[in-house]
């Protein structure tokens, strides 16, 4: 028991707070806060995906909105086909749409993972600034494609008329949907924690710290990075799928470069490379939006000032300033 670090205690507190707040809100008859907490959980999940690539792998992807949006569109497209009773295609075999979350999640993760595989194959050939610009450019390509392809709403986006179903749970009740997203977030955090402590995680962090030494022991940094990039995209894609179901709407906005920036902001505000960094960051972001957004419609201006101050003066984010520097033990 004595060996529990401050960060672990902080992480448990964060998870517990996020879990308890919606129930308090319900008992006070303020269901709006349940939706707010659900948004925190989904944003955090998107951040967890990026944090794996950015924090552990040192891959500064400025294009994670692509995967967030692809996950969202996978849900939107499949659900709209199911609701219209028209199959995606009928030959050589018939593929129907679906409204089952578990299948939708799987599809969202596979599709965003495939997109990441292709983008990664090109962008991971480079590093540094090139990587930032190329991930941004590819995300923008998908954004423009979504806008100019008219079949699924184009610029107007695509509505999902009824929230998709989860076996044995009524997802239309906000608290149930919150618990689902919370469960997914915790599983993703568990997965990332396991990965980090595995041989794969060690190789990944070695690829960030010293590429040449990793090559010298016979592991190809490119393959490790590509695998990380794909897993990272799949987690963010899953967050996009949940986001689509939360809003019952997907739009090209989910794919825009601004979303990429925001996902990165979640990671930074909380603390780069910290397991619960994205959770803290997403919570801070939503709190900030809620408090300042109520005071002025120009809250983004103040967000910019705060972000600038964090980058210039408070590196390490919230978790870094509360729990101290990263311990390598």
């Amino acid at each position: 028991m004595l060996n529990v670090s401050r960060e672990t205690i902080l992480n448990c507190l964060l998870a517990l707070t996020l879990l308890v707040v919606p129930f308090i809100a319900l008992s006070l008859d303020e269901p709006f806060y349940v939706t707010l907490a659900t948004r925190v959980a989904i944003y955090a999940l998107a951040g967890v995906g990026l944090n794996l690539a950015l924090g552990l792998g040192g891959l500064i992807s400025f294009g994670h909105a692509a995967f967030f949006g692809i996950g969202g569109y996978a849900v939107g497209i499949l659900a709209s086909h199911a609701l219209n009773y028209e199959p995606h295609f009928s030959s050589p075999f018939e593929l129907e749409g679906t409204t089952q979350m578990l299948i939708l999640w799987l599809v969202a993760m596979i599709v965003s993972g495939l997109a990441a595989l292709i983008i990664g194959l090109f962008s991971l050939r480079t590093s540094g600034v090139y990587f930032i610009m190329i991930t941004l450019a590819f995300a923008q390509m998908i954004y423009y494609f979504a806008i100019s392809w008219p079949a699924y709403g184009g610029e107007d986006g695509l509505s999902i008329y009824v929230r998709n179903g989860f076996p044995g749970v009524n997802t239309l009740i906000p608290i149930n949907f919150f618990l689902i997203t919370f469960g997914v977030l915790m599983s993703a955090l568990f997965l990332v924690a396991t990965l980090r402590n595995s041989r794969f995680g060690a190789a990944l962090q070695a690829a960030r710290q010293n590429e040449d030494r990793l090559s010298a022991v016979g592991i190809k940094p490119f393959n490790i990075r590509l695998a990380t990039f794909v897993i990272s995209a799949m987690i963010t894609g899953l967050a996009g799928a949940l986001f689509a179901d939360l809003n019952r709407f997907v739009s090209p906005n989910m794919l825009s470069w601004h979303t990429s920036g925001e996902i990165m902001v979640f990671v930074i505000l909380g603390g780069v490379g910290r397991l619960f960094g994205p959770v803290a960051g997403a919570a801070l972001f939503i709190l900030f939006e809620f408090i300042f957004g109520g005071l002025t419609e120009h809250w983004m201006f103040f967000l910019g000032l705060v972000l600038l101050a964090v980058v210039l003066f408070a590196r390490g984010g919230l978790i870094g300033s509360l729990a101290g520097k990263v311990r390598y033990d």
């Binding site: 500064i60 400025f62 930032i132 920036g261 990165m264 902001v265 930074i268 983004m300 201006f301 967000l303 910019g304 000032l305 972000l307 600038l308 980058v311 210039l312």
Partner: peptide, 10 residues
């Protein structure tokens, strides 16, 4: 990237 992103917002 982050600082200049913050500048864009501002």
């Amino acid at each position: 990237v982050l600082a200049t992103f913050a500048l864009i917002l501002i």
